[in-house]
Design a binder for these strands. Structure first.
Lengths: 149, 149
DNA sequence: CATCATATTATGGTATTTTATGGTTGTCAA
DNA sequence: TTGACAACCATAAAATACCATAATATGATG
């Protein structure tokens, strides 16, 4: 299953927030009932995925030379920064404060589906980002077509 | 299976509408019993497809590259706008209000088969669209015109 | 061919469950 | 002991499951 759609939920003072129902459903077949969060390398937002995908990433980096510089960087950048957050009984997680601050989130969190991954934005920041990139993305729209079905 | 034909069904006040039987049949072998809807990038209508197709699209654009901004923007545009809607026991879905408003649908929804995808139109809007494209087609295909004797 | 029976679909209304959210309490470790 | 954090209630609103019926198609039979 995929992370689809855009949902806005409130974050309380403790950083507690409901993960959208559809997003939770997207992980219901996984052994780990929760999500992995880490800061985005390209935008002012939090990125998230399933544990399953993290393991896939790990397998991909395993193919690199153990002592290569690349491997060192990837491991330190991705895995050291990632936190696993499990859902509580009502479907909430507690987002660590440093991630909330990194994304500039105040009060409300925007969950943005991206297929295999998702992002968590401050609403205002997301609108700023969209204004900048939407037209560019539309220009590249022809590349969206399938090569083969 | 393909989405074929054009069927008109009623939408109630909650946005609830029966998906045409033939369209439901087109998804009967999929694991997700429902459809994915998103707003058209080119027309005043809603577009739809199966979850299977979405996953194919995800596989095509997913390259595990955490640092590619282009990849990020592209994924955002498609997946952040998509909603997964499962059929209820009688074969209905609830179309989100913002999509209904985007397409200008009032009362009745026109399901238009397009093979691997389909569209949902307001009837009047669809007829307007058809009239426009017919004229364009005529303009661009002078070879169709009859010779006067 | 007309008519009746049956199955499927479409539609409307209501009841129940799920979700999101806030607040409180318990617990473990620094 | 106190501060951080997880577990535990409680509740309003929203979503969806449920039930009943109408409309349509399908098919059998005399």
């Amino acid at each position: 299953m995929l992370f689809l759609g855009t949902i806005e939920n409130k974050i309380d003072a403790k950083g507690r927030v409901s993960v959208p129902s559809d997003f939770r459903m997207a992980t219901k077949n996984d052994s780990f009932q929760g999500v992995i969060l880490y800061h985005s390398f390209t935008h002012k937002c939090i990125e998230g995925c399933t544990m399953e995908r993290m393991e896939k990433l790990s397998d991909a980096t395993d193919n690199l030379d153990l002592f290569s510089e690349e491997n060192e960087n990837l491991n330190s950048l991705i895995f050291s920064d990632a936190r696993q957050l499990s859902f509580d009984v009502t479907g909430r997680i507690v987002i660590p404060m440093d991630l909330i601050e990194f994304a500039g989130i105040k009060g409300n969190a925007l969950f943005v589906g991206r297929g295999k991954t998702f992002q968590i934005w401050d609403k205002a920041e997301f609108e700023k980002y969209q204004a900048e990139t939407r037209q560019n993305a539309l220009k590249n729209r022809p590349s969206l077509s399938f090569k083969k079905d």
